[in-house]
Amino acid sequence: MLLINCPYCGERDQSEFSNGGEAHVARPKNPELVSDREWSEYVFIRANPKGIFYERWVHTHGCKKWFNAVRNTSTDEILKIYKLGEEPPTLKDFKNTPKTPSGEPKVGSGNFAVKKL
């Protein structure tokens, strides 16, 4: 159960929020000038990394404000939350987190061996 620190309301349970997928995907300025392929990339394709993920959340059952977060999708740890328009942290800020950590243990499947940052 994620605990999300809404930059406007404070820490709240994940059930108050909705996720908006990848952050910083700009809508083409002149849609009519882009190709079908480029347009489909914008509409349908979003990053889906196992590891550091820049994403959007909205406090649906609260202030209804959108904001950005950086989360490790292999551990669900939220590493950073920042408002729209604020400079996103660079990947270097999270350099200890491999992009696709292979979390699963060598044997069995229990005890998901994820290293804490």
Partner: peptide
């Protein structure tokens, strides 16, 4: 320990 455990 090489056999491992199942997920609890």
């Amino acid at each position: 320990s090489e056999v491992g455990t199942t997920i609890y």
